[in-house]
Design a protein around this nucleic acid. Structure first.
Lengths: 106, 106
DNA sequence: TATATTTGCAATCAAACGGTTGCAAAAAGA
DNA sequence: TCTTTTTGCAACCGTTTGATTGCAAATATA
């Protein structure tokens, strides 16, 4: 059972849950109201998000508020650092120049 | 069959393939040499990367060179924009201040 | 032309995924 | 106390995933 951030954000429902929790901490029931699938299905998604520490829980009475952990999401950003230079405008333009030179050669 | 960038980068082997191709375009055989699994398994990963346009192919004779498409990866970066403010130092410090105030109250 | 190399496609299989229903535990309210 | 609400856990089920093996097509080489 793989449980990393990349696998967690692969599912569109989980991405939607994350976007919700980034705005405001919420209970499972409140989250589930935003989706068509059952509360248990949503709860399973929350569990997966918990296991990879994208969300943390804070219990108050019988309600559990789930909080988004932005620091964990940063891991994705760090991985993408290796590509960031490739899509920046300056480098893309250089790439075009090189491509044009290559085309003229052949 | 979902075929989006998020699902594509969920698999660690595919992430490794992407990192390889970001440095240099390569043939399936050359890519497969970097992994323990079979050439066909790697080829299937390449196919998935192709379907979501993270890589493009350029055939020369019987060899096919696969190129990384950084623009497509940018889609992940765009999605992460909504969280970026949350992990920036200035906001984290503000968060700490608020947390301290809250702790003093209770 | 005959052989070797490179690649994609099809069939198969165990494991994981995403969903459902049912149920039990704990807290809140009548 | 009895009932309702909120939640997690377990069992189950069809589909998808990631891997394997075998084979055919196309190109390069002897």
């Amino acid at each position: 059972m793989r449980r990393d951030v990349f696998q967690a954000i692969a599912d569109p429902t989980r991405r939607a849950i994350i976007s919700l929790l980034a705005l405001q901490a919420m209970t499972p029931n409140a989250i589930a109201e935003h989706f068509q699938s059952s509360r248990q299905a949503v709860s399973k998604h929350i569990q997966i998000l918990s296991e990879c520490q994208l969300v943390s829980q804070k219990q108050t009475g019988r309600e559990i508020y789930y909080h988004f952990n932005a620091q964990k999401m940063k891991e994705v950003d760090v991985w993408m650092d290796q590509f960031r230079a490739l899509w920046e405008t300056r480098f893309s333009q250089l790439d075009n120049v090189l491509q044009n030179l290559k085309n003229k050669q052949s």
